[in-house]
Design a protein around this nucleic acid. Structure first.
Length: 270
DNA sequence: CTAAGGACCTGTCGGC
DNA sequence: TGCCGACAGGTCCTTA
């Protein structure tokens, strides 16, 4: 499933194929995604031309001359470019056809993804109250520390809260905390400012190196060009239960927090 | 306001 | 092999 590096990899994969082309047709085979796909999508897209594909948090923003399609990939979604005549599979819910002969296809077996339309996407209900982008300069130790005052929630769930900072999903939360040497169960309000500095650096590093590697492929993720990501080879904590910590050889522990798996070293992470 | 749990949905994997 | 439960990359909503 896509975390921020996978979404960014998808963005970079599809943008060059669809920018400056005109939408000729939209096919929605199943409107029942996380929220029903509104008619405004297929009403406004045809005839528009694509100006850019940008990203806010894990949302892809397909910007056109008429407005913006807001696409979220959920847990199992992917987008890729095919030719018009490529047969659609059972989970291929949306096609956007272009005058170039290409089609942008959205596939999502679990249907936790979503598709919306807006003239002012950043003001959209789902985007307006999101936290800063993790790779922006405004996301720093002071900001995180201030947000954490009085918070008893675990640091792992805290950094996964998109209203605090966007784009830190379940894999990279474990990875960043491992690299920062912080116990994922520690209360957010009980992490010192200095350790937030280490954590912010770790988050930025783990996300940017994952983007550089083209994302992490676990099961079925592929970037817009159909290429697998290679970050999985660099994972140090996630999915390594029982395997030796690369620092101290202690077996990596697996716990559950907020109904999500967390992996960490109980010796290195305090 | 915070924190915790449920909800949405399908596919895959491990164990018996 | 076949069946069945556990689990999977997200995040909104409800409840207390």
């Amino acid at each position: 499933m896509p975390e921020l590096p996978e979404v960014e990899t998808s963005r970079r994969g599809i943008e060059p194929h669809i920018v400056d082309t005109r939408v000729t047709r939209v096919i929605i085979r199943n409107r029942r995604l996380r929220w029903p796909v509104p008619k405004t999508v297929d009403r406004n897209l045809p005839g528009s031309s694509i100006s850019s594909v940008t990203r806010r948090a894990k949302y892809l923003l397909i910007n056109t001359s008429n407005g913006t399609a807001i696409l979220h990939l959920g847990m199992s979604g992917s987008v890729f470019v095919v030719n018009h005549d490529t047969p659609a599979g059972v989970h291929d819910h949306v096609d956007i056809d272009f005058d170039s002969g290409k089609t942008l296809r959205f596939r999502d077996p679990r249907r936790f993804g979503s598709l919306h339309w807006s003239k002012t996407p950043l003001q959209h209900k789902l985007l307006i109250s999101l936290g800063p982008e993790p790779l922006d300069d405004e996301f720093d130790a002071r900001y995180l520390w201030e947000q954490a005052r009085g918070r008893r929630v675990s640091i792992k769930q805290f950094i996964m809260d998109a209203h605090i900072v966007v784009g830190v999903g379940n894999i990279y939360a474990s990875e960043a905390l491992y690299r920062a040497g912080i116990n994922p169960r520690r209360a957010a309000g009980r992490v010192a400012l200095q350790r937030y500095d280490t954590l912010v650096t770790a988050i930025k590093e783990v996300l940017s190196s994952a983007i550089k590697a083209g994302g992490t492929t676990l099961r079925d993720f592929y970037g817009g060009d159909g290429e697998a990501g290679y970050f999985q080879q660099k994972l140090e904590a996630y999915g390594r239960e029982g395997e030796p910590c690369r620092q101290c050889d202690t077996p990596i522990s697996a716990i559950v927090q907020g109904q999500r798996s967390t992996f960490y070293c109980r010796k290195c992470q305090t």
